[in-house]
């Protein structure tokens, strides 16, 4: 891990915004992105009704509770949406010539609770399809921990 990661928990707002600007980070999603710096995938969960929602919002859309806790998920799920980009914004380690997969994963915590990213290097191409079980992994992109998905266990 690069040296400038050692005190990530102390990253101030300006540095956090600079690092995740392309994601459209705002006050309501700041905790989610701070979690990434610790390699934890935090999804907003309601303390009162227990339901999850994403993208991060300040109030539970199911019960209007404001008691929201960004909570680590298991990282297990199945590919629900899949596309392969042949062009797109430049990004470190992303080669569009071969096609860059983007997967929306339905997380096991709740039906239709989904998180979008790509797959890990070496993901078997014959398993790159809707329905395949996946599990969360972390890679570095330009020094920033980035959540991706590797092949999960069937069952």
């Amino acid at each position: 891990m690069p040296a400038d990661f050692e005190d990530d928990s102390a990253t101030d707002d300006t540095a956090l915004i600079a690092r995740f600007g392309g994601h459209g980070i705002d006050r309501d999603s700041a905790a989610h992105f701070r979690g990434r710096l610790e390699r934890r995938l935090l999804i907003h969960r309601c303390d009162d009704c227990g339901r999850w929602h994403h993208p991060p919002r300040p109030m539970c859309p199911a019960c209007w509770s404001w008691n929201i806790t960004p909570t680590e998920v298991s990282g297990r799920g199945r590919i629900h949406l899949l596309m392969t980009l042949h062009q797109g914004p430049p990004a470190s380690g992303v080669d569009y010539a071969d096609g860059h997969p983007v997967v929306t994963v339905e997380l096991e915590e709740q039906p239709a609770l989904r998180f979008t990213s790509t797959v890990a290097d070496g993901f078997p191409t014959d398993r790159l399809e809707i329905g395949t079980p996946v599990t969360l992994e972390w890679v570095d992109r330009d020094g920033t921990p980035t959540p991706v998905f590797g092949l999960g266990e069937d069952g």
Binding site: G21, G22, H23, L81, M83, L85, G88, P89, P90, A91, V94, H100, V102, T104, T116, S117, T118
Partner: peptide, 13 residues
């Protein structure tokens, strides 16, 4: 000035 990320299933994608 902000570069979007590739892993995005919103908007046109």
């Amino acid at each position: 000035s902000i570069l979007p990320i590739p892993e995005d299933a919103t908007k046109a994608a």
